[in-house]
Amino acid sequence: MRFDGDPTWLDNPVITQGLPTALWETLAMTAGSALITAVLGVVVGVLLHNSSPGGVNPQPALHRVLGAVVNVGRSLPFLILMIAIIPITRFIAGTTVGWRAMIVPLTVGAVPFFARLVETSLREVSSGKVEAATMMGATRWDVTRKVLLPEALPGIVAGLTTTVIALIGYSAMAGAVGGGGLGATAMSYGYNRFQTDVMIAAVVLLVVVVQLVQVVGDRVARAVDHR
């Protein structure tokens, strides 16, 4: 409970000491899961695209199975997914609390999302470019590595930006069930103990982080776009 006379804003130790730690935890779990998601999402996205009927290596069975798995991953609300995979989290991370453990559900939640964005970007690469490379005697691996991925890079970067921002949102949810970070702080002090100053500070920090990610993502996407 909050009492009149409790220190607020910069006199409040929750803000001066708790928030910096929480911010670091949020950034750490977002960055950790974003890195793994970037790698796995590109792999799954490429598999989805290349195995599709118009892809460089059509594999209808693989495409259907992979598509179904991705759809299941995407249709589960993150909160439920996080709880449902607790055994897996414990198996991989050894624990289910703390920001390190949270990287597991965050990654599992984000990979299907990002993989679909990667697939869409790859599909937008004109078939003429793929045909031109095929006519040079390129293998499917050459086509993927030298044509599809570089040509889709601006779209993939934009997709990763969107994914990272979604991860920041998920991380706040993860915090609410023991994951730490800004979400946990806002929940336990801002909400449960009515410390409005903490709530406002946490929200401002989240907004600033999201803005920074968007600005950096846009810049990188522009830098790699030569169209």
């Binding site: 003429g128 006519m135 570089p150």
Partner: peptide
């Protein structure tokens, strides 16, 4: 793939890689 290298193909819309 080796036989295809005997052809050089020029397309209507050059089909160059933007990257």
């Amino acid at each position: 793939r080796a036989a295809r290298r005997r052809f050089g193909v020029v397309y209507q819309h050059a089909n160059l890689l933007d990257s």
